[in-house]
């Protein structure tokens, strides 16, 4: 099969180029970048794609809260004549066995659309202000849950990635939602203390104070995945803040950054299982 991926951009996204690059490195056959305005105008649909990437950025400036106005636009924007609403297109992509990754602002968008931790189309969790009230750019260490159904994080173990956000603290509606996440292994990545390997709520190892160190969510199918860290920003070993120390003697044999693994996992999985 031809594996086609779409990076949806516009209205404040700003990571579309590196996200598309990462998906190409991961082995997708065709990667398109499409503006949300073009999607709304019906220039293209989601139907031809197996992988949808919602990249990082500041949808509508995050003015009403991160990705809130963006989610509202997805929910209430009118489709062009002859086209289905975006929500219907998203459902169809997922029902056909496709996958969605939302990164940072894209994760906030998925959460506010009500697609995580289950595809309820009704918010069950939110991502809100970091405990210290600040936007921060720093690298963190994450541990993958090997029992998670997430198709993106299989075999990851631990991984270093940058976070760049002011609203990354996960708040659940109630205990039932928290139980769903825990019991279903729907938090595929958590912030850990690299010294102990244990999940952490302590700043700055956990940059936002997210309970249990939760940095990402997936749905029970494992095909809807959102994470606050930026895997597309670790596409080459020189992206890592300590590369001049770790590779003092010369470049590694494989110069690819570890962030590509998440995309390659999904591309490989979709190639095997889509349809």
């Amino acid at each position: 099969m031809t594996l086609r991926a779409l990076v949806l951009c516009g209205n404040g996204t700003n990571c579309e180029i590196e996200t598309a690059h990462a998906v190409r490195l991961a082995g997708a056959d065709e990667v398109n970048i499409l503006s949300v305005w073009e999607l709304v105008a019906g220039h293209d649909t989601l139907d031809a794609y197996q992988l949808l990437c919602l990249p990082g950025g500041f949808l509508d400036g995050d003015h009403l809260g991160s990705a809130r106005a963006g989610a509202f636009r997805f929910a209430h924007g009118r489709p062009a004549a002859g086209r289905d609403p975006i929500r219907v297109q998203l459902d169809r992509l997922l029902d056909a066995g496709g996958a969605i990754i939302g990164i940072c602002n894209g994760f906030q968008l998925l959460v506010k659309l009500g697609l995580l931790p289950t595809r309820a189309w009704e918010p069950r969790v939110t991502l809100t202000h970091n405990l210290n009230g600040r936007f921060e750019d720093r690298w963190v260490t994450l541990q993958a849950d090997p029992e998670s159904p997430c198709i993106f994080t299989r075999g990851i173990g631990s991984i270093d990635l940058p976070v760049r956000h002011g609203e990354g603290r996960l708040v659940a509606l109630d205990d039932a939602v928290r139980d769903t996440i825990r019991d279903g292994h729907l938090a595929p990545l958590v912030y850990i203390d690299p010294a102990t390997g244990a999940p952490t709520e302590a700043y700055p190892l956990n940059p936002n104070g997210s309970p249990g160190g939760v940095a990402a969510l997936c749905d029970p199918t494992g095909r809807i995945f959102g994470l606050m860290p930026h895997p597309e920003a670790f596409a080459h070993y020189t992206n890592h803040p300590r590369w001049t120390r770790d590779f003092l003697e010369g470049p590694p044999d494989n110069e690819e950054g570890a962030g590509i693994l998440l995309f390659r996992n999904a591309v490989d999985w979709l190639r095997r299982n889509h349809g």
Binding site: R134, E136, D137, R138, R164, N239, P241
Partner: peptide, 23 residues
């Protein structure tokens, strides 16, 4: 200052404003 500015969006950073063992 450095931490509150996104200094690596675009994914092409090689030497960031802060470096070293603990960045």
């Amino acid at each position: 200052w450095v931490r509150q500015y996104d200094h690596e969006v675009k994914g092409r950073s090689v030497v960031k404003p802060l470096c070293g063992a603990n960045a």
